[in-house]
Nucleic acid binder design. Structure first.
Lengths: 210, 210
DNA sequence: GTCTATACGCCGATAGAC
DNA sequence: GTCTATCGGCGTATAGAC
């Protein structure tokens, strides 16, 4: 396929972060670059050379830190896993379940540009690896399950007997909003849906127990 | 990247459909093969050789019918566009708006395996072309807009003042269910969500006008 | 119009100097 | 540990016989 269609000629949005006084190791910079580029461009579209360039590391050196591209993908999944867990731990600091669930919506609002431009990094990882059928696809799918489980816990605390179904609804609403906003390249659409999701959460929380 | 991760060594699920007595032209078979493979494997992962193999056409011959891979992608988008319009026209044959909306859910139920295994073909097209920033990405995004507009029409006929928001909710629910079922590789999850979407539709339709 | 052979560039991965 | 040079294979696209 022509380069025009499938590869950005332009320099990636995230230019070299190389900060001389930063103590970050080459390995860390490579991981961060890969996380960003895999999200922005997709795994297959991103070359090792791209990652090396953004991380400010010579091409051949990448293979010293990550023996194959697969290893790099695997490391990115692990890092995203930690990222989600950290997000959920932070959410748990909120006073009550409703606020904890709302903080997921707030996180989405804070990342509206990124989500609209490139979609959800977790779903994108999972989708990009689905065809491979390997263990990596399973691990990527696990990222979404973490969100669902968290939501289920909160709805359970709210004493909703249909907690599992509500959790599925909640996360599906979120991911559906990401998908549509991204496909239509419309951040306003995302804003509107997030507002409605928040309203829905409040309504569910206020609802009398059955 | 190693072949193991990013390419299926195995023969595509859709093997050569070459039916001797079928009158289908090579160009038609190429288009159908591309539609299937782009959905099953993604655009970038699918090579011209893959398409040629499945269509039963010699490699070099592909370029006689479609001058570049971009041209093939463009043709696939146009075909998907027709496909959606046909689906919506068929839905409009239903007696009332509620049934018309439900027929979208039924369509999803009928395609549960495909949707779970490979995700929504329209969203996947749109996402796969988003990075390119070209006109193709816009056209792919239009596919989803068709669904939203259709839903909005039906909610309007149902005299819902919040028809646009309800339409967005409805389609977002659907696409969210696709995304999660695909990422977690869980057809049962899709079934459950589709059931809940149908129940939600009925509840909205039955709701007294405000 | 149909087919084979091949040019050309890109990318993952390695070799080996320092 | 760091870097340069390069291999080998694949994928798009073309040349040119029939």
């Amino acid at each position: 396929m022509s380069q025009f269609l499938l590869r950005n000629q332009v320099i990636p949005l995230t230019t070299t972060l190389e900060n001389p006084n930063s103590k970050s190791t080459a390995k860390q910079r490579l991981l961060e670059a890969a996380m960003t580029l895999f999200h922005e461009q997709g795994i297959r579209t991103t070359t090792i050379a791209d990652v090396a360039l953004v991380a400010g590391v010579p091409l051949g050196n990448v293979y010293y830190h990550y023996r194959t591209k697969d290893a790099l993908v695997s490391a990115v999944i692990a890092a995203r896993h930690k990222e989600v867990q950290a997000e959920l731990e932070l959410a748990k600091c909120q006073a009550n379940p409703l606020e904890r669930l709302r903080s997921l919506v707030k996180d989405s609002q804070n990342n509206r540009e990124l989500l609209t431009a490139h979609g959800c990094p977790y779903a994108s990882l999972a989708q990009g690896l689905r065809d491979t059928g390997g263990i990596l696809a399973e691990q990527a799918g696990e990222l979404l399950r973490l969100h669902i489980e968290f939501a289920e816990q909160q709805f359970t605390i709210l004493e909703k007997p249909e907690a599992p179904a509500l959790a599925a609804d909640f996360i599906a609403k979120l991911y559906g909003a990401y998908t549509l906003a991204n496909a239509m390249n419309n951040p306003t659409f995302l804003d509107q849906q997030l507002e409605r999701i928040e309203a829905w959460l409040e309504q569910i929380a206020a609802r009398k127990k059955v």
